[in-house]
Simulated scan of single mutants.
Amino acid sequence: MPEVVFTGPAGRIEGRYHPSKQKGAPIAIILHPHPQFGGTMNNQIVYNLYYTFVNRGFSALRFNFRGVGRSQGSFDHGGGELSDAAAALDWAQSVNGDARTCWIAGVSFGAWIGMQLLMRRPEVEGFISIGAPANRFDFSFLAPCPSSGLFVHGSEDRVAPVKEVMSVIEKVKTQKGIQIEHAVVDGANHFFDGRIEELMQTVDGYLDKRLGKPDEEAA
Results as ranks from 00 to 15, higher is better:
D208G: 13
V168Y: 01
E14D: 05
N55P: 05
D98I: 04
Q36P: 03
K176E: 15
K209T: 13
E123P: 02
R100K: 15
G131V: 09
A28T: 01
E198I: 02
Q36V: 10
S71E: 07
G126S: 05
T7Y: 10
G110S: 13
E81G: 07
D208N: 15
H190G: 02
E217R: 14
L199Q: 08
L150K: 00
H182Q: 09
R195I: 07
Q36F: 08
L117W: 01
P19L: 15
R16F: 05
M115S: 11
A111N: 07
G212N: 10
S83N: 12
W103Q: 03
D215S: 11
C102K: 01
E198S: 15
A85P: 02
R70D: 09
R195Y: 14
K171V: 09
D204K: 07
E3C: 03
T7M: 15
S94Q: 11
L82D: 09
L31F: 09
T52G: 10
R121C: 00
Y50R: 04
G106K: 03
L142Q: 02
V162E: 10
R56W: 04
K176I: 10
E156T: 09
N48R: 12
S147W: 06
G79C: 00
L142N: 00
A88S: 10
R12Y: 05
S59M: 15
K171E: 12
E3L: 06
K176H: 13
Y206A: 05
F141M: 13
L207P: 02
G39Q: 06
A183N: 12
A28N: 01
L82E: 07
E198Y: 09
S155E: 13
M1V: 07
N189W: 08
E170S: 13
Y51H: 11
G79P: 00
T202D: 11
A86N: 14
R62T: 09
R195F: 14
P33A: 03
R66A: 14
G114F: 02
S129E: 04
A143G: 10
W112L: 03
E197L: 00
F65K: 06
E164L: 08
G110V: 00
H153E: 12
T174P: 00
G114I: 03
A160R: 00
E3A: 08
H18V: 04
T174M: 03
R195T: 12
F109A: 12
L199F: 11
R120F: 06
M41H: 14
S20V: 13
E198D: 15
A218Y: 12
F37C: 00
T101M: 10
Y17Q: 11
H77M: 15
A86F: 11
H18R: 04
Q72H: 13
G194C: 10
F6V: 13
I27G: 01
V159I: 04
T202F: 10
R70M: 11
M166S: 09
R100S: 13
I45E: 07
K213E: 14
L61H: 01
R70A: 11
G57L: 04
G149V: 00
T52L: 13
R121Q: 14
G39C: 08
G80R: 13
F139W: 11
S140Y: 02
T40V: 07
K21V: 09
P2S: 15
I104T: 02
F191R: 00
N96C: 04
S147V: 11
I45T: 11
K21L: 06
